[in-house]
Amino acid sequence: MRTGRWQPWLFVGPALIIIAFFLVYPTVMTIVRSFFGRGQELFGPNVQFVGLANWKYVFTSPTMLLALRNNAFWVVMFTFFTVTFGVLLAVLLDRVRYERIIKSIVFVPAAISYVGASIIWKFVYAYRAEGLPQIGLLNAIVVALGGKPVGWLIERPWINNICLIVVGIWIWTGFCMVIFSAAYKNIPRALLEAARIDGATEWQVFRKVTLPLLGPTIAVVATTMVVQVLKVFDIVFVMTNGAYGTEVIANRMYKEMFNFFNYGRASAIAVVLLFLIVPFMVSNLRRFTQQGVTR
């Protein structure tokens, strides 16, 4: 599109100014602060230069290594299921007349606050001693099938992490569904009809036409989900606060920042999040470039 030299800046200007102030400037400060010690101030007489001490902690302490491992597990599980469910719902719901009702049901978790969600899942994972009436849905099922009640959020290393990830998937699938649905409804129907007339089965239409056309949106939503995972905090914070081997990076950061008043260490952890997003940004950059070429 032809534009004047200054016109693009008029369009991106407001966003860039706001972002520079609210995100870039604090990020620079965070990077600088990661070389300084404990305390709750940005700088001042109580804050001392500590060199790489925070960085050593971030990459060597067992807690952080555990958090990194858990975040990797979250990235794989959470991203895969939210995106898969989101795409399937978007495509399948387009074919039924009660689409709006189902969409609303899947959307509800997103509308309920984390505090509400944590109570909901308390009544799924609750544990009661053997022989007493179970008030947790999962344990009620386990006991009804003749099993022994399980401490779902206690059982390390995988069961409790999976239980937390399930909560995340439950909350975020609605988001993926809505975005994919908006993209799917923009796909020209004629393309799908043409494939059907050519004798393609529904599965083939999905694989060969729908999925490639949804490709860019899938990449965007998947990247968004990865970012959400790296920042995942509320679910872990309210349900286990990282106990029993469920620690994640962002929860660690919050604790160091607001419970332990170790601004320096919290800063180093926050910068790690920036590093971790780089590979995903690089893959996005490639896609962005390809798009530019085809125009």
Partner: peptide, 11 residues
């Protein structure tokens, strides 16, 4: 303890 250690941790 009611529910044993798991009971204590989850209550």
């Amino acid at each position: 303890v009611l529910g044993g250690p798991v009971g204590a941790l989850t209550t």
